[in-house]
Protein backbone atom coordinates (compact mmCIF):
# COMPACT_ATOMS: atom_id res chain seq x y z
CA UNK A 1 0.00 0.00 0.00
CA UNK A 2 1.27 3.51 -0.72
CA UNK A 3 2.73 5.61 2.09
CA UNK A 4 -0.05 8.18 2.14
CA UNK A 5 -2.65 5.58 3.17
CA UNK A 6 -0.62 4.96 6.32
CA UNK A 7 -0.32 8.69 6.99
CA UNK A 8 -4.03 9.32 6.47
CA UNK A 9 -4.93 6.28 8.57
CA UNK A 10 -2.81 7.53 11.47
CA UNK A 11 -4.22 11.05 11.15
CA UNK A 12 -7.75 9.64 11.42
CA UNK A 13 -6.65 7.28 14.21
CA UNK A 14 -5.72 10.27 16.39
CA UNK A 15 -9.20 11.74 16.03
CA UNK A 16 -10.83 8.35 16.67
CA UNK A 17 -8.73 7.89 19.81
CA UNK A 18 -9.91 11.17 21.36
CA UNK A 19 -13.47 10.71 20.09
CA UNK A 20 -13.82 7.23 21.59
CA UNK A 21 -12.40 8.42 24.91
CA UNK A 22 -15.02 11.20 24.96
CA UNK A 23 -17.85 8.81 24.06
CA UNK A 24 -16.90 6.35 26.81
CA UNK A 25 -16.66 9.20 29.29
CA UNK A 26 -20.06 10.53 28.12
CA UNK A 27 -21.65 7.10 28.70
CA UNK A 28 -20.20 6.67 32.19
CA UNK A 29 -20.14 10.12 33.77
CA UNK A 30 -22.84 11.64 35.98
CA UNK A 31 -24.92 14.38 34.37
CA UNK A 32 -25.98 16.87 37.06
CA UNK A 33 -28.05 19.96 36.06
CA UNK A 34 -26.26 23.09 34.79
CA UNK A 35 -24.86 25.35 37.45
CA UNK A 36 -23.88 28.92 36.55
CA UNK A 37 -21.46 29.29 39.46
CA UNK A 38 -19.67 26.06 38.59
CA UNK A 39 -19.47 27.01 34.92
CA UNK A 40 -17.95 30.42 35.58
CA UNK A 41 -14.42 30.82 34.14
CA UNK A 42 -11.67 30.50 36.73
CA UNK A 43 -10.23 33.79 37.93
CA UNK A 44 -8.76 33.06 41.36
CA UNK A 45 -12.25 32.43 42.71
CA UNK A 46 -13.33 36.05 42.13
CA UNK A 47 -16.13 37.24 39.87
CA UNK A 48 -14.88 37.61 36.31
CA UNK A 49 -13.98 41.20 35.41
CA UNK A 50 -14.38 42.35 31.79
CA UNK A 51 -13.90 40.24 28.70
CA UNK A 52 -11.42 37.39 28.50
CA UNK A 53 -10.35 38.14 24.93
CA UNK A 54 -7.92 40.79 26.09
CA UNK A 55 -5.41 42.65 23.91
CA UNK A 56 -2.00 41.09 23.87
CA UNK A 57 1.51 42.30 23.27
CA UNK A 58 2.41 43.24 19.69
CA UNK A 59 5.78 41.48 20.26
CA UNK A 60 4.07 38.16 19.55
CA UNK A 61 3.46 39.29 15.95
CA UNK A 62 7.06 40.42 15.52
CA UNK A 63 8.34 37.03 16.64
CA UNK A 64 5.83 35.30 14.40
CA UNK A 65 7.12 37.34 11.42
CA UNK A 66 10.75 36.48 12.15
CA UNK A 67 9.72 32.85 12.57
CA UNK A 68 8.10 32.75 9.12
CA UNK A 69 11.34 34.00 7.53
CA UNK A 70 13.49 31.45 9.31
CA UNK A 71 11.11 28.55 8.90
CA UNK A 72 10.95 29.07 5.15
CA UNK A 73 14.75 29.24 5.23
CA UNK A 74 14.93 25.83 6.92
CA UNK A 75 12.57 24.50 4.25
CA UNK A 76 15.17 25.53 1.66
CA UNK A 77 18.00 24.04 3.70
CA UNK A 78 16.40 20.56 3.98
CA UNK A 79 16.63 19.55 0.27
CA UNK A 80 20.11 21.10 0.17
CA UNK A 81 21.14 18.95 3.14
CA UNK A 82 19.75 15.76 1.55
CA UNK A 83 21.85 16.19 -1.61
CA UNK A 84 24.84 17.93 -0.01
CA UNK A 85 27.14 14.92 -0.34
CA UNK A 86 26.66 14.76 -4.10
CA UNK A 87 26.97 18.47 -4.79
CA UNK A 88 30.17 19.33 -2.94
CA UNK A 89 31.87 22.68 -2.51
CA UNK A 90 29.73 24.68 -4.97
CA UNK A 91 26.61 23.94 -2.91
CA UNK A 92 28.50 24.84 0.24
CA UNK A 93 29.47 28.23 -1.19
CA UNK A 94 25.86 28.90 -2.18
CA UNK A 95 24.63 28.00 1.29
CA UNK A 96 27.30 30.30 2.74
CA UNK A 97 25.83 33.21 0.75
CA UNK A 98 22.25 32.22 1.61
CA UNK A 99 22.91 31.98 5.34
CA UNK A 100 25.05 35.13 5.18
CA UNK A 101 22.08 37.12 3.86
CA UNK A 102 19.82 35.59 6.51
CA UNK A 103 22.28 36.39 9.27
CA UNK A 104 22.30 39.97 8.01
CA UNK A 105 18.52 39.96 8.47
CA UNK A 106 18.84 38.56 11.97
CA UNK A 107 21.44 41.18 12.87
CA UNK A 108 19.14 43.91 11.50
CA UNK A 109 16.19 42.64 13.55
CA UNK A 110 18.45 42.43 16.60
CA UNK A 111 19.75 46.01 16.17
CA UNK A 112 16.22 47.31 15.57
CA UNK A 113 15.21 45.76 18.91
CA UNK A 114 12.71 43.29 17.41
CA UNK A 115 14.20 40.55 19.58
CA UNK A 116 13.76 42.47 22.84
CA UNK A 117 10.84 41.47 25.02
CA UNK A 118 9.41 44.39 26.98
Amino acid sequence: MPDFIYVIFFLILGFVFVGSAFVVSWLLRPKPPENSVKNAPYECGEEVIGTSRVQFNVRYYLFALIFVIFDVEVLFVVPWAVSFRQMGSFAYLEMLIFIGILTLGLVYAWKKGALEWQ
Binding site: F15, S25, W26, S36, Y42
Partner: peptide
Protein backbone atom coordinates in the same frame (compact mmCIF):
# COMPACT_ATOMS: atom_id res chain seq x y z
CA UNK B 1 -11.41 8.88 38.08
CA UNK B 2 -11.02 11.27 35.14
CA UNK B 3 -13.25 9.04 32.99
CA UNK B 4 -16.08 9.34 35.55
CA UNK B 5 -15.87 13.12 36.03
CA UNK B 6 -18.83 15.28 35.00
CA UNK B 7 -18.62 17.57 32.00
CA UNK B 8 -17.96 21.26 32.73
CA UNK B 9 -17.99 23.81 29.90
CA UNK B 10 -17.00 27.32 31.05
CA UNK B 11 -19.62 30.03 30.46
CA UNK B 12 -18.94 32.04 27.33
CA UNK B 13 -16.57 29.44 25.87
CA UNK B 14 -16.26 29.23 22.09
CA UNK B 15 -17.85 25.75 22.11
CA UNK B 16 -16.69 24.40 18.75
CA UNK B 17 -13.07 25.51 19.20
CA UNK B 18 -13.15 24.44 22.83
CA UNK B 19 -14.26 20.90 22.00
CA UNK B 20 -11.95 20.56 19.00
CA UNK B 21 -8.82 21.62 20.91
CA UNK B 22 -8.14 18.22 22.60
CA UNK B 23 -8.45 16.55 19.18
Amino acid sequence: KLLLKENIVPAGADKLIWWLAPF
